[in-house]
Simulated assay, not measured.
Amino acid sequence: MALLLSLLAALAAFSCCPGGSLGCNLPPDDVPLSRENFQLLDQMRTSAFFCQEDRKNFRFPGEMLQGSLSQKAQAMSVLKEMLWQTFLLFCTEQSSAAWNQTLLKELQAGLYSQWEELRGCLVEETGEEDSALSVERPTQAVKRYFTGIRLYLKGKKHSDCAWKVVTVEVTRPFSLPIWKEKLSMKDGDLGSPR
Rank of each mutant, 00 (worst) to 15 (best):
C24E: 00
N25G: 11
L26P: 08
L26W: 04
D29E: 09
P32M: 02
P32N: 01
P32I: 09
L33C: 05
R35L: 14
E36R: 11
N37V: 07
F38L: 13
F38E: 11
Q39R: 12
L40Q: 07
L40M: 07
L41P: 02
D42L: 06
Q43K: 01
Q43W: 04
T46A: 12
T46Q: 08
S47Y: 13
F50W: 09
C51E: 05
E53M: 13
R55V: 10
R55M: 09
K56G: 07
K56H: 09
N57S: 13
F58L: 04
F58I: 01
R59E: 13
F60H: 07
P61R: 09
E63P: 09
M64R: 08
Q66L: 07
G67Q: 03
S68M: 11
L69E: 02
L69W: 00
L69H: 03
K72C: 14
Q74H: 06
M76S: 13
S77E: 08
V78G: 01
L79I: 11
L79A: 15
E81D: 10
M82A: 05
W84Q: 12
Q85H: 05
T86A: 11
L89K: 01
T92A: 01
Q94R: 08
Q94C: 06
Q94M: 06
S95F: 00
S95V: 10
S96R: 15
A98N: 05
A98Q: 06
W99A: 13
N100S: 11
N100W: 05
N100Q: 06
L104I: 13
K105C: 15
E106G: 10
E106P: 04
E106I: 04
G110M: 00
G110S: 11
Y112R: 10
Y112F: 14
Q114P: 06
W115E: 03
E116N: 03
E116P: 00
E117G: 05
E117H: 12
E117Q: 10
L118K: 00
L118D: 01
L118H: 01
L118T: 01
L118C: 01
R119Q: 11
C121F: 02
E124V: 14
E125M: 06
T126F: 09
E129Q: 06
D130I: 15
A132R: 08
A132E: 11
A132C: 14
L133T: 13
L133Y: 13
S134E: 08
Q140N: 15
Q140H: 12
V142I: 14
K143A: 02
K143M: 04
K143S: 05
K143C: 04
R144M: 15
T147N: 02
T147I: 05
T147S: 07
I149D: 02
I149V: 12
I149Q: 01
R150N: 14
Y152M: 07
L153A: 02
L153E: 00
